[in-house]
C-alpha cells in the first residue's frame, strides 16, 4: 500500500516535470523549424509543426530586409567589448576588496554594493542624458562603457579572490613582481572558473540586452541584433519567416555557448544575483 502510494506520487511528479519540459522544448523547436518554412506555410491554416516546404530564403531575407550582418557585427562588438572591459575592471576591484587593506575600503565597498540597489529601468532616462552629454550617443563607447562596472560581478570576484592563500602573493612579492603583475599573472589565473562565469554572463547579458541598445543605439547603423530585430518586428509590413530566422540567429550562439558552458551559466547566475 505504502509503495503504491509512493509510486503514484512519483508518477504524478514526473508527469508535471515532463509537461513543464515540453512547454519549453516544443515552442523552441517550433521556432527553429519555422525559420525554414516558406512564408506561405507559416501563414497557412491549419498551422504546421514540422517543416513541409524547406527553404533558406528566410535567412537571405533577413540580410535584404534588415541589415542583419551589420546588426550581428554590432552585437559582437557590444558583447566582446563589454565583456573584455568588465573582466578587467570588475576583477581588479574584486581583488582589491578581497586582498587589500586600505583607508576607506568599507566606504568604497558599500558605495559599490549600493549601486546594486539602483534599478537600471529607473535611471535609464538620466543615464541617456549623461551618455548624450558625453557625446557618446549612437557610438560603441556609449553602448559599452556604462555597462562595464557591475556591482554583482565585483561581489562575485571578491568572493573568488578571498578564498586564495596568502602565500601566493607573498611569494610573488619576494620575487619582485609589481602589484599589477601579482594580480594579472599570479592571482587572476587562480580564479579562472569565476572569470569564465563572468565572461559567459556578460556575453549573454549584452547579446540579449534590449532596452539599453534601444535607448542609446537608435541609429540604423548602430542597432544590435536584439534591438534591430525588435524594431523590425514592430513594423507593419512584417515578414514572419525573416523574423523567425532572425530570432534563430539570435538564439543559436547562446545555445552553443550554453551546451559547452552550462555549469558556468548556472554558477554565475546563482552567485552574482538574478537578472531581469
Amino acid at each position: 500500500m505504502e509503495t503504491v502510494k509512493k509510486n503514484t506520487a512519483k508518477g504524478i511528479a514526473f508527469i508535471i516535470l515532463l509537461i513543464l519540459a515540453l512547454l519549453v522544448v516544443v515552442p523552441l523547436t517550433w521556432l527553429a523549424l519555422s525559420a525554414f518554412k516558406e512564408e506561405k506555410e507559416i501563414l497557412a491554416y491549419p498551422p504546421t509543426f514540422f517543416t513541409h516546404s524547406f527553404t533558406l530564403k528566410n535567412f537571405a531575407n533577413t540580410a535584404k530586409r534588415i541589415k542583419i550582418i551589420r546588426y550581428i557585427m554590432n552585437s559582437v562588438i557590444y558583447a566582446v567589448g563589454t565583456t573584455a572591459l568588465a573582466v578587467v575592471v570588475n576583477a581588479m576591484a574584486g581583488y582589491a576588496y578581497a586582498r587589500k587593506k586600505f583607508l576607506g575600503k568599507n566606504v568604497f565597498f558599500i558605495l559599490t554594493l549600493a549601486t546594486m540597489m539602483i534599478p537600471f529601468q529607473v535611471i535609464m532616462v538620466p543615464l541617456f542624458l549623461v551618455v548624450y552629454k558625453l557625446g557618446m550617443y549612437n557610438t560603441y563607447w556609449g553602448l559599452i562603457i556604462p555597462r562595464v562596472a557591475v556591482a554583482g560581478s565585483i561581489f562575485m570576484m571578491r568572493a573568488a579572490f578571498a578564498g586564495l592563500p596568502v602565500e601566493l602573493e607573498d611569494a610573488a612579492r619576494i620575487d619582485g613582481l609589481s602589484e599589477w603583475g601579482i594580480f594579472w599573472r599570479i592571482m587572476l589565473p587562480q580564479v579562472k572558473s569565476s572569470v569564465i562565469c563572468l565572461i559567459i554572463l556578460s556575453i549573454n547579458g549584452s547579446w540579449n540586452d534590449l532596452l539599453w541598445p534601444m535607448i542609446v543605439a537608435s541609429d540604423t547603423k548602430m542597432r544590435t541584433l536584439a534591438n534591430g530585430l525588435a524594431l523590425f518586428v514592430g513594423q507593419n509590413s512584417i515578414q514572419y519567416g525573416a523574423s523567425f530566422a532572425g530570432a534563430l540567429i539570435s538564439i543559436a550562439p547562446m545555445f552553443i555557448l550554453y551546451i559547452f558552458g552550462q555549469k558556468y551559466f548556472v554558477e554565475g547566475m546563482a552567485s552574482s544575483g538574478l537578472k531581469g
Binding site: A96, K100, A149, W180
Partner: peptide, 30 residues
C-alpha cells in the same frame, strides 16, 4: 601593497559614479 588598492578600485568606482550614482541623483533633480 596596500596603497595600490586605489588603482585597482579606481576604474570601477569612476564608472559606477558616472553611470549609476550620478544618473540617480540627476533623476531626482530632473
Amino acid at each position: 601593497a596596500e596603497g595600490s588598492a586605489y588603482y585597482f578600485i579606481l576604474p570601477s568606482i569612476v564608472l559606477l559614479i558616472i553611470f549609476s550614482i550620478i544618473p540617480l541623483i540627476v533623476s531626482f533633480y530632473m
